[in-house]
Design a protein around this nucleic acid. Sequence first.
RNA 1: CGGGGCGUAGCGUAGCCCGGUAUCGCGCCUGCUUUGGGAGCAGGAGGUCGCCGGUUCGAAUCCGGCCGCCCCGACCA
Length: 489
Amino acid sequence: MSDDKKLTTRAADFSAWYNELVLRAELADYSPVRGCMVIRPLGYGVWERMQRALDDMFKATGHVNAYFPLFIPESFLSKEAEHVEGFAPECAVVTHGGGKALEERLVVRPTSETIIYSMFAKWVQSYRDLPLLYNQWANVVRWEMRTRLFLRTMEFLWQEGHTAHATHDEAEEEARRMLGVYRTFMEDYIAMPVITGQKTEAEKFAGALRTYACEAMMQDNKALQAGTSHNLGQNFAKAFDLTFQNEAGEQAYAWNTSWGVSTRMVGGMVMTHGDDNGLRLPPRLAPVQVVIVPIWKTDEERDATVARARAIADDLGSFKRLEHERIRMHVDDRVGIKPGAKYYHWELRGIPLRLEIGPRDLASNQCMLVRRDTREKVAVSMDALATELPARLEAMQRDMLAAARARLEANSIRERISYDRFKEVMEGDGAFVYAGWCGDPEVEAQVKAETKATIRVIPDAEFRTPEAPTTCLVTGRPAKYEVVWAKAY
RNA sequence: CGGGGCGUAGCGUAGCCCGGUAUCGCGCCUGCUUUGGGAGCAGGAGGUCGCCGGUUCGAAUCCGGCCGCCCCGACCA
């Protein structure tokens, strides 16, 4: 048992811990191309669970899926001034095809507003054609200077919703609705509590009227922007001539929204729940929820325990069961590996529950059940598994959210502090600091330069401090907003 | 792009200063014994020492150039 089996601890080096964990738990690996990653089956399995849950939520809120191409004519990008300024520097551009220089260069999509709204313009004539509520699951490319597995890669997977509406208020409602969908998903599935709110001008999406975001707190107290939803106003409609005839018979520009979440959420999940023993997967996202480890000494015992393990897995994991009643099971019947080694193997990978079935258990018609989050170990009757396992999985899902929420609050500073104290906090352990802001972008830039902290959001009402701050943290001038400051990924 | 670090077997490394047959651990393969918290013993496979050039009888080691990756910063889902 040498030390190289142990992970670097979070306390020793959070960044190293994260990288090691992602690699060793086999979530992802570095690719031959700098800044790109290979998502391995465990990581992709988590992403698939995320996709399913979100896709259902999108459908339930009236959206349909479609697919738009990877290549976008370069000229499209430049039709919206702020948009091109924001994205052009990080675009990959195709200059040649079939061995010849292209007449017009093609941008590999960094996001699809331009191509989608140019198509919407073809499809919309009347207010009766609205709203258009589209989503696509896709990959996008942004030429990032510095990358990190899942958190920032040059190519990443995401979904991008794009909608068109007849009025500003409808678009605003949509942008808000989808922010709420994201929040629900992050809390109910990733067990990752978030602060929602509006982005400042400096932080908003290039080309948007307003940007809303979900901000989560990682275990190093840094913020992770986990999802964004934009009210695009009529900026893109004007750029792409997305017009319709309204009820009064007049031509009007449509109002758009776009919203997206990405594989970055997998990184968020890791940094929210991982511990020094490895990954901890929220049960709802775990590709395997229960791993059964049969234990034996003799061949006869092996036959018996493996058979029993398979019978349980086949029953509770059967595809004949309705999905919500099905438990995702795996039997680790590898020979030549001792049980202890298997325990470490699955703990590193964050599988929520482990069932140990040995000869003694067969004799007493019970088995040992171990929770990954608490490592609590209890004996459970074999006959009770069909109810015990789902109950424990649900309890884990709840407990993980509660623990993460407690950590978020414990590392938030809501009392009024001086700017000097603020600097100390940001140089030290970090925190989400709720404070007044006079609304001056210069102040925001100054704080960023001095402390690396930024305004994560102007929080929505429910997240605000009961007694609103009256003065600006930095200038002492009257506070225009209460904002959340933090260092971010 | 600036700063730092590193390229030696699948992974992690020693050797480099002071040139002379490639080190160790993990992993892998075979066999036997094991299996309720990272098994033991025995045998075995696996290497263009990142690339190119130079110095030398001889280069992982010295010199020059290049490439790649990771970490820290400026930019970002």
